[in-house]
Design a protein around this nucleic acid. Structure first.
Lengths: 350, 350
DNA sequence: CTGAAAGCGCTAACAT
DNA sequence: ATGTTAGCGCTTTCAG
């Protein structure tokens, strides 16, 4: 394999257009101080030669790398990929993130990092040193890991925290968990439900608490109690089973359950079945995520959609623009919506 | 945002270890001609300072970029992501490709390219010029697009063609389509089926033909006719419906159908239902892909698994090693397996 | 408004 | 076995 050089470099363009390298550079970077005529001439050469700048060279000379790094939790991501249960978080991030990057001449790269590892810092340094990204997207549970956020803050690397609305460095951007949980609860209240159980996510994810808050708020407003109606899971199927079991084994069992992930809702569905309960006849179910599988279950699940693509897209935009404009102080909220399907319905007659 | 420079460079390491840049470079790249003692000293400095080479600088100096580019069909990929129907091709590529890249110090990057565009070449040049990848993975239908394969061949950029077994430049690597189709057919023959229909994929994918060949071969061997038992689809749901309809409307309708994608199988299931046929009682169904949804349908689908992760992983290895070792002449085959579930069973009594 | 010079971090080629 | 030199392609000074 021959030592590969750039086919067309800025030099070729400069020679072709009969100008200096800098002028070409200015045109590429849309800098001022180039006469329109000159600019047109250079652009013509660029087009004719099919010139595209090398991001390595751009990066080397101290400018941008045109790379955005999306950091995901290694363990969870790999487990999801291997399980093949239809979770499409990564796909949706790519859909939103990659395409927006592409529009702006950037590329998005995925990096897997262990949150719990004691050498997070080493992993991060490695990725940053090797790639020198212009921006970083953090996903839960990284978004609120002080080791990780601190790392980027110290180094002045722009980063977005998806699923976090804490104050602090970095752009906080959430999917409106509190209001989404309210939405789900209200949907059930509208159907006459009064005992609405909630299967929350793990503590490690701050959105878990926000969802609980939303649910409680809606219940309070309706003058209903939420005592003993909340259980925790870890988003996984088994934990959902356990939680659903606890809630449905109560004397006065809930007539509806809101679960913080599709897997946990699926688990609740299975538990209900095992208890001889009809869904939605005896028990209404509302899910969170709205991943592909919810349409293939029987009944299909009513679910709060998580607008991951839109969120990733917004994060990319804010990161790319963070050089020019100041980033928003307040958390950015990209709201989801409730998709009503067959798993929720009227409260069963007493 | 301050002009960001590399925190720790090769210079720092050299100074710290009291050696020349070149010696450090040799240690990094595991080149010969460094005494163990020297090597240890340098390595110690590297570790202490937490030095990681900048891939931009490495690339600039004419060495590798440590980047592997996975090129997917833009239209199909985006459609899949938006449809959220559980196709996890990209995830499986990442699972196999990214992790293997990571093991070897490489990164994998996804690039979407329009096969049908008249400026494919421009798109490719752009990606190559910007990123300078050390290797490229082509997925169907790019794998056999001469414009695309020619592009990389001309430029001496190592590339793998997934799903292609044509001769020619680049590493051909398939998932054993012919033998997989045989496997599926044999499974049905073993259950006594004699009229086994086949819904093939589009012509554009060479694997479509290979699967047909495998099915025909198995049928021939069993002394059975395959006349009029093959229809074409485009892997999508609607096309599957059409094809299944044609096959099942025949006088002497097939007792089993093999469909070349999960979506088409799902469509066949729907058509069968609409005709009042029980699956697998009246009609057995075997699918290709084994994507997440097949476990959530009723009945779950018997399917030929496509070992995408293993294939991507193998492709990455072959690409990375293509500098040192010669690439295999013969097509590499990563075989899939048949996962038997509820959609296939004994032939119904005549 | 445009150009010339210097340097980013690293490695290939050539000394020693 | 190690060090020195030159240069990759680009942008940032700084001069004109």
């Amino acid at each position: 394999m021959a030592r590969r050089r750039q086919a067309v470099t800025i030099k070729h363009v400069a020679a072709d257009a009969g100008v200096s390298l800098q002028t070409v550079s200015r045109v590429i970077n849309e800098e001022p101080n180039v006469r329109p005529a000159m600019k047109a001439k250079v652009q013509a050469s660029i087009d004719r030669l099919g010139y595209v700048p090398s991001i390595a060279a751009q990066r080397m000379s101290g400018s941008r790398s045109y790379l955005i790094l999306a950091i995901n939790d290694r363990e969870r991501t790999i487990a999801d990929w291997k399980a093949r249960e239809g979770r499409d978080w990564v796909d949706q991030m790519l859909l939103g993130g990659m395409l927006t990057c592409a529009e702006r001449g950037y590329r998005m790269l995925i990096e897997l990092v262990d949150t719990h590892s004691d050498h997070v810092e080493r992993e991060l340094s490695g990725a940053i040193a090797a790639l020198q990204p212009d921006g970083v997207i953090l996903t839960p549970p990284h978004s609120e890991n002080p080791l990780i956020t601190g790392f980027f803050a110290e180094r002045n690397i722009p980063f977005a925290r998806i699923g976090s609305r804490q104050d602090g460095p970095g752009i906080a951007i959430t999917m409106g968990d509190r209001s989404n949980a309210r939405l789900a609860t209200q949907h059930l209240l509208d159907h006459g439900h009064e005992r609405i159980g909630f299967v929350a996510g793990p503590d490690e994810f701050s959105l878990s608490k926000r969802r609980i808050d939303g649910w409680k708020a809606a219940m309070d407003e309706a003058g209903l109690s939420h005592d003993g109606l909340c259980e925790r899971g870890d988003f996984g199927f088994d934990s959902g089973k356990l939680a659903a079991h606890k809630l449905l084994a109560r004397d006065h069992r809930p007539t509806a359950l809101i679960c913080s992930s599709d897997q946990m809702t699926l688990a609740a569905l299975e538990v209900a079945r095992a208890m001889g309960l009809d869904v939605p006849g005896d028990l209404s179910l509302v899910s969170f995520d709205n991943s592909p599988i919810v349409r293939f279950t029987d009944p299909p699940l009513t679910a709060v959609d998580q607008p991951i693509a839109a969120t990733a897209s917004r994060a990319v935009e804010l990161l790319i623009d963070s050089g020019k404009e100041p980033s928003p102080e307040e958390p950015v909220i990209v709201t989801g919506e409730l998709v009503v399907r067959g798993s929720s319905g009227p409260v069963p007659p007493a």
